[in-house]
C-alpha cells in the first residue's frame, strides 16, 4: 500500500512549512518507509490511517513525529555551533560576573529529545566555568521514551561521530559495551523530565539560559505565543533565550527583544516589562 498523491502532498507541505525541507516527488516510498514505525507507535493500523486521522484532527505531537522521522539532522552534538560559541564567548563571561555570589547557573534544554543538546551544554559549562562553580541543566521533552533515552546517556558509535570533537569524546564519555556513556561527572548535573510546553508549565526555579530550538516551528501563532509567555516566566530577568535559526519572537510576543550574541542572536525579556505580562494572548 503506497502513499497516494494527496497523502504525499499533505506530508510534503507539512515538512516544508515546519522544517523548511523539500521532499521531491518520487520520494513516496521513502516517506512511507519512515512513517511506518511512527504510525505503529501511535497505534494506527497503517500509514494511510495515521495520515487520514491527522488530516481530520491536527495533532502537534504527531506532526512533530513525522518531521523527526523525515529529518536526519536532529541528533548532532553542539548542533549549529554558533549558540554554543555565543555561550563561551559572550554569555558565560557575563554570568560569571553577575552570579559571582551564588556561583551557580541553571540551564534549560527545552526539547531535549535524546539528550545531545543538554549534554553539549554540560560539556560547555564544564569547560567554561571557573572551579568552585556549580551548574544544573534540566532537559524536558514531550516523549516519555526520549526522556528515558536521555537519562540513560548512552549513544551509539554513529551518534558520537556527529559533531562531537574527538577530544571531548574521550574526555566526557566512556565505553559501555557497544555504546559510549556520558561520564558521571556530567550526568550528575543533568536531569530530564517529561513536559508539554503548550500546557501550563509546572513550577520550576527560573533559568539563566534557555535553549528552545526548533520547537516553535511546530506550533501555530497562538500556541507559539502561549509557549513564549510560559517560558518568559521561567527566564531570569537578565537571562537569555535561544531559538532555532528559523524561529523568532518578533511579531508573536513583544515582551522579548532580539539581541546579538556572538555571531548569532538570542532573546531577552525587555526591561521594565514584567515577564509574561503581554496583553495580546
Amino acid at each position: 500500500m503506497t502513499l497516494s498523491q494527496p497523502e504525499f502532498a499533505f506530508v510534503s507541505t507539512l515538512v516544508r512549512k515546519e522544517a523548511s525541507i523539500v521532499l521531491a516527488p518520487g520520494k513516496e516510498y521513502l516517506v512511507e518507509a519512515r512513517l511506518i514505525p511512527v504510525a505503529r507507535a501511535v497505534g494506527a493500523a497503517n500509514v494511510n490511517e495515521f495520515l487520514a486521522e491527522l488530516q481530520r484532527r491536527p495533532n502537534p505531537a504527531h506532526q512533530r513525529k513525522i518531521i523527526d522521522a523525515l529529518t536526519t539532522n536532529e541528533t548532532s552534538w553542539f548542533r549549529d555551533r554558533e549558540p554554543f560559541a555565543a555561550l563561551t564567548d559572550v554569555i558565560l563571561p557575563e554570568l560569571i560576573k553577575s552570579r559571582a555570589t551564588t556561583r551557580k547557573v541553571r540551564f534549560w534544554s527545552g526539547a531535549s529529545s535524546s539528550g545531545q543538546e543538554a549534554y553539549s551544554l554540560a560539556i560547555t559549562l564544564q569547560e567554561a566555568l571557573p572551579s568552585g562553580w556549580n551548574y544544573e541543566i534540566v532537559g524536558t521533552d514531550i516523549s516519555t521514551e526520549m526522556v528515558k533515552r536521555a537519562e540513560t546517556a548512552e549513544y551509539s558509535q554513529v551518534e558520537v561521530n556527529r559533531g562531537l570533537p574527538a577530544s571531548q569524546l574521550v574526555q566526557y564519555f566512556e565505553r559501555a559495551g557497544a555504546h559510549w556513556r556520558v561520564t558521571s561527572q556530567l550526568r550528575k548535573n543533568v536531569s530530564f523530565k517529561l513536559m508539554n510546553l503548550t500546557a501550563p508549565l509546572p513550577a520550576m526555579q527560573p533559568f539563566d539560559v534557555i535553549f528552545m530550538r526548533n520547537v516553535l516551528i511546530y506550533f501555530d501563532v497562538a500556541t507559539k505565543r502561549t509557549v513564549l509567555q510560559n517560558v518568559a516566566k521561567l527566564l531570569r530577568p537578565d537571562g537569555w533565550l535561544f531559538l532555532g535559526a528559523a524561529e523568532t519572537t518578533i511579531g508573536i510576543d513583544d515582551n522579548y527583544e532580539r539581541v546579538a550574541a556572538g555571531r548569532t542572536s538570542a532573546y531577552r525579556v525587555r526591561t521594565g516589562v514584567p515577564a509574561g505580562a503581554s496583553r495580546r494572548g
Binding site: T72, V158, N161, R162, G163, A166
Partner: peptide, 24 residues
C-alpha cells in the same frame, strides 16, 4: 590525538557525520 591527529572519525560513519567533523 597525542601523536598529532586533529580529529578522529570512527567507521562506520555517515556522510553527514564526516562533513560535520570537517566543519569542526
Amino acid at each position: 590525538l597525542a601523536a598529532g591527529a586533529h580529529e578522529y572519525v570512527i567507521k562506520p560513519f555517515t556522510e553527514g557525520a564526516m562533513i560535520e567533523k570537517l566543519a569542526l
